Amino acid sequence: MKILLTGCAGFIGSHTLERLLADGHDVIGVDNFDPFYARSLKEANLAASSGPGTTGQGSFELLEADLAEATTYQKLKFMAADQPIDAIIHLAAKAGVRPSIEDPVGYQRANVIATQNLLEFSKENDIKQFVFASSSSVYGVNPNVPWTEKHDVSGPISPYASTKVSCELLGHVYSHLYGIRVLGLRFFTVYGPRQRPDLAINKFARLIEAEEPIPVFGDGSTRRDYTFIDDIVGGILACVYKSVASGAPETENGKLKTEQPEGCMPAYAVINLGNDQTVTLAEMIATIEEVVGKKAIIDRQPEQPGDVPQTWADVSKADELFGYKPTITFKEGVTEFYKWYQAQGRSF
């Protein structure tokens, strides 16, 4: 297939790229190399995921561009002229709850406007398969765990979460009006090799190894559904492959059918991708201590605005639709991350 993959130089995007190439697909990758963290780390992600010896039969073309700019789409159309795009995997976004509070307008532009533009591109070029990254943040403060896709998401508590709700709603509009299959994958706290340096497991591992204090917000009782990168990428690709195999969503008299044929993916859905288990902040720190072999120095700080007390995914819908079954335990995942980190040297 020919796949358009956005955010290809990021943490999740570069792992997805690696798997797509290994599976023999041709990939157009888009990334704007946002300076949220060092460009050199993103370049290293690309080198690891698309360099010599990492590909199967697939090819890779990189477009460095801003998805919120209209001119980007003329370039994409030119790059896809020789072979139509079979599916879009849209992973590009400004991520992070706390930074979004400081820059809500920037998050709206990078997440919502870019997604709108990409859906327009999908409509105009008759691309019927659109899979994008949503987030567990859409659930807000919901004490009814585990969270299912039927739970209300009308109460986001950060600008980042609100942009992801907006993208889900946009996806529904384009699916309904234009017969595009739009599938939003709600990721739950993804971690593993190549993880962004600002995220807790990466940051804590570095600080604990260096015997420096780690900032701990609250009393350590907050819980997260940590999901290893290999499980997430496996879910993304299983979703895409099942979606493409289902063909274009069926219509009747020019209108999208609410019910698609048995065995096909729905025309629109939001789907949890998590580990279906939770780990407290205190347990996370203890696991990193065990893997690194050093005790943490705790710098206790107040809870942060926009943070939720817990996340927990019910993944039964993903299992039903495309056989998603996470397999990596938290300790196994932290161990794999630390092996990768050690292999990098002190480059963060």
Rank of each mutant, 00 (worst) to 15 (best):
H15N: 14
H15C: 14
G56W: 03
D307I: 05
I127Y: 02
V233H: 07
F33Y: 13
G7T: 05
V334S: 09
H172K: 15
R194Q: 12
F217I: 02
F132H: 06
V153C: 13
F187Q: 13
V27D: 05
V30G: 06
K317W: 00
S243T: 09
G29Y: 07
L273G: 14
V244K: 00
K77Y: 02
G323R: 04
Y268E: 10
P52F: 04
G293E: 10
S166D: 15
G58V: 04
S59R: 15
D31I: 06
I127D: 00
L237S: 04
G247L: 07
D299C: 03
K77W: 01
L5Q: 08
D314Q: 01
R346M: 02
D231M: 12
E336N: 08
H25Q: 08
D126S: 15
P197Q: 08
L67M: 04
S40I: 05
Y324C: 10
P215E: 15
L256C: 10
L183C: 14
K317T: 02
Q260D: 13
L256D: 07
V27N: 10
V291P: 03
P159M: 05
R194L: 09
F217P: 00
R224D: 07
V279Y: 06
T54D: 12
T227G: 11
F60T: 12
P99N: 03
R39S: 10
C239Q: 06
T54I: 00
